[in-house]
Design a binder for these strands. Structure first.
Lengths: 286, 286
DNA sequence: ACCATTCTCTGACTATGGTCAGAGGATGTC
DNA sequence: GACATCCTCTGACCATAGTCAGAGAATGGT
């Protein structure tokens, strides 16, 4: 019903943004250098970057990227050297001249942003920035894919570490993960290669699946990533043949409990001997 | 002070949007047809459009536009015919096949928007849409230029008409503009050729300038356009050699009065015999 | 009737963006 | 040490984007 006005608002905004900001940006950043060359220079950044990594980030053909890099090296802005760790790869770093160009790009971009909001009153400026921050979070959350991984995937391990660390901070008596357990399938959402949301399912002897280790990075909360993780974990459990999911949690985790209830979970009796668990929930999957 | 975090938020959002939405959009709309051709087709729309108008809206070189149009006419999607009102101009309209292609583009764009928000919960979706609507309004307001025109400019006349109509609606006894007055300089903000904000200054015998006919379109309120109009009218008064501005208003217009007070105006005695005026303000310009 | 101006269109270019196949060196695995 | 794979780079292309000068028809003002 309101679907149509929702998409209309989104499309209208997109039109405004690309027309008023995107165009401005191109004319700003593109001075002197072709747009893709400028973007590449910007992406390499003061700390340098691997060529392979740049290819992924900018989604460019390898041959094309090589040629773009050539222009930058010819202009004396960038230096390429083999990666000592893997000599098939090359690392790109900015020369002093390159750093100067980078700073100039950065300043232009900063100036563009400042100029864009300048006509607004401070009050309206505040409203705009707040709206953009909200939209940024939600758009990122909406466009971040949940990837299925095993428990020993490096990203999964990093996420688990951060999950345990948070429990240790929040539980009054701390938290001890005990012996690592290599069972189950996990979903992770990543941003720039780092995990921002994580969760898993494990089969139980009675045929249910247990949802475990649900975790969302602080900076990504409030965007519905947790609910989405829960939904997709349930779908994963269904795919693996389970008709019912259970989970346990600690009374400290109030937001989590509220979310389980919103998602249709009902309290059940203790089904395990997890010493940290104080509440148990279950939901039948259709 | 908070300037730096403001621009950082804006830049961060821009990065997210262009990366996650812009790229998606190009791959979506660009299927089969080059991006600019698709955009042009979309811009012509079911109602058709003048070639001159398209050139302005898309900001294209006239030669380039002609060639883009050629591809559309060659493919049987668009028909060009001379404008009966001015035979130098040409009008572009979609053929039935063109309308079908247009609809397809429209549906794809709609689908893209729906898909983007699909992973969000209804609650988060609502928040996103609200944030985008706010941002849309504010960005448009911030990037709309105020143009100086004379009182007889067609856009100024249209704006004046809407201003008078609104007074007539809001004043208990209606409003009669009386004899049109061709004095003063005006500022208008336009969107797609229609006025969305309007206001003027007129020299008074005592050397002050009078601010008059301040008006902002309903759909554009709440974005600070009024304050900006006021500021720029003051600047216009200064440029024309005035050191003080005055204005009168009606008690009905409560938002306007609040804005004048925020902008540093102080109440003064009645300085004219305007029968609709119930409050008078002045501000000394530096 | 003249003149400056406007609009569209053509020709002639150049630059930018993007693709593909394959060479050649480096790496990891069995 | 053989083999599949990965990474970078080159050559050979082609499409798209964008610019500029000017021709030719139409218009508006004087």
């Amino acid at each position: 019903m309101s679907d149509r006005t929702e998409t209309a608002t989104l499309r209208e905004f997109n039109r405004t943004w690309t027309q008023r900001v995107g165009v401005l940006e191109e004319s700003f950043l593109g001075t002197g250098r072709p747009l893709n060359v400028a973007r590449l220079l910007f992406e390499i950044g003061p700390d340098g970057a691997g060529v392979r990594e740049l290819r992924d980030r900018l989604d460019l053909d390898s041959g094309y990227l090589t040629r773009l890099l050539r222009r930058l090296t010819d202009d004396g802005l960038v230096e390429l050297r083999p990666d000592p760790a893997d000599r098939r790869r090359r690392l790109a770093t900015l020369t002093p001249a390159g750093r100067a160009s980078w700073r100039e790009l950065d300043e232009r971009s900063e100036e563009l942003a400042a100029r864009l909001v300048a006509p607004l009153t401070p009050r309206q400026r505040g409203r705009l920035i707040e709206a953009l921050a909200t939209a940024n979070l939600l758009v990122r959350a909406a466009t971040t894919a949940l990837r299925e991984v095993g428990p020993d995937d490096p990203v999964a391990r990093e996420a688990a570490g951060r999950y345990f660390a948070e429990l240790d901070r929040r539980f009054p008596g701390g938290f001890d993960p005990g012996v690592p357990d290599h069972e189950g399938r996990f979903l992770v959402a990543t941003s720039a290669g780092r995990p921002v949301a994580y969760g898993g399912v494990r089969p139980l002897p009675d045929g249910s699946a247990e949802i475990k280790r649900m975790w969302v990075d602080d900076a990504w909360r409030g965007a519905g990533l947790g609910s989405r993780m829960l939904r997709e974990l349930e779908a994963l459990a269904v795919r693996r043949g389970h008709g019912r999911v259970v989970l346990d949690t600690n009374r400290t985790l109030v937001e989590a409990i509220a979310m389980y209830e919103r998602a249709g979970y009902s309290p059940v009796e203790r089904y395990n001997d997890n010493p940290y668990a104080q509440a148990w929930f279950a939901k039948v999957l259709t």
